[in-house]
């Protein structure tokens, strides 16, 4: 009787935990579904199908040197007196 009870409890734990893992693994995080590689390849295919308009980089090739000027703030009144 005790053996049967232990076996039943273990089986229930296994079924519940594995069902939870499969549920959360497959359905709750669909973007990271069971086969990550598959998803990555799907994403790559999507990227290939897109008509991409090249973006012209209008940034200057040389970054101007910024010189920092100290900011002098007026004294702040802390009380109304």
């Amino acid at each position: 009787m005790k053996i049967k009870t232990f076996t039943t409890v273990a089986l229930l734990i296994f079924l519940l935990v594995s069902a939870a893992i499969i549920y959360f693994g497959l359905f709750k995080t669909p973007l990271q579904s069971s086969n990550i590689q598959d998803n990555l390849s799907l994403i790559k295919k999507d990227e290939q199908n897109l008509t991409v308009t090249p973006i012209v980089d209008q940034q200057p090739t040389t970054t101007p040197t910024q010189t920092s000027t100290p900011v002098i703030r007026p004294p702040v009144r802390t009380s109304a007196s």
């Binding site: 232990f6 076996t7 273990a10 089986l11 734990i13 296994f14 935990v17 594995s18 893992i21 499969i22 959360f24 693994g25 497959l26 709750k28 995080t29 990271q32 579904s33 069971s34 086969n35 990550i36």
Partner: peptide
Amino acid sequence: SFILILFHPLLLVIKFIPSNWPLAAKYLL
């Protein structure tokens, strides 16, 4: 032996939880 064998896959995949549920599920399917 049945109880130990039941817990064998669960203990192996539990390391992926909670960081990577999909990978844990992958090993059970």
